[in-house]
């Protein structure tokens, strides 16, 4: 069964849009981390520097899964592996 290039490109665009839904997870996770960090600073304002650096490190690690989705979207949109 043969598909033409436009059909494959359109489906690739839909797939790219679906792939960046992966951003929901890191958004929720980073928000939870930031909320707990704010609570920690409220309880112990002296440890603000340590809490902030730990929070940023954890958030950057949690961001990875969202970035994988972004990479898939990029590949589908710009490298076009299916429409070769």
């Amino acid at each position: 069964m043969e598909f033409n290039r436009e059909f494959i490109l359109g489906c690739s665009a839909i797939g790219a849009g679906l792939a960046v839904i992966a951003g929901i997870g890191p958004g929720v996770g980073q928000g939870i981390a930031a909320g707990h960090a704010a609570a920690a600073v409220g309880r112990n304002p002296g440890a603000k520097g340590d809490v902030t650096s730990t929070m940023l490190l954890g958030q950057a690690v949690a961001e990875t899964t969202g970035l994988y989705g972004l990479l898939i979207a990029m590949l589908l949109l710009f490298v076009k592996p299916l429409a070769k």
């Binding site: 970035l67 994988y68 990479l71 990029m74």
Partner: peptide
């Protein structure tokens, strides 16, 4: 892989 992809994808997303 995860270390390098994290750095790459973050900088690439900013560039894009």
């Amino acid at each position: 892989v995860s270390l390098s992809l994290r750095l790459f994808a973050n900088v690439l997303s900013g560039t894009v």
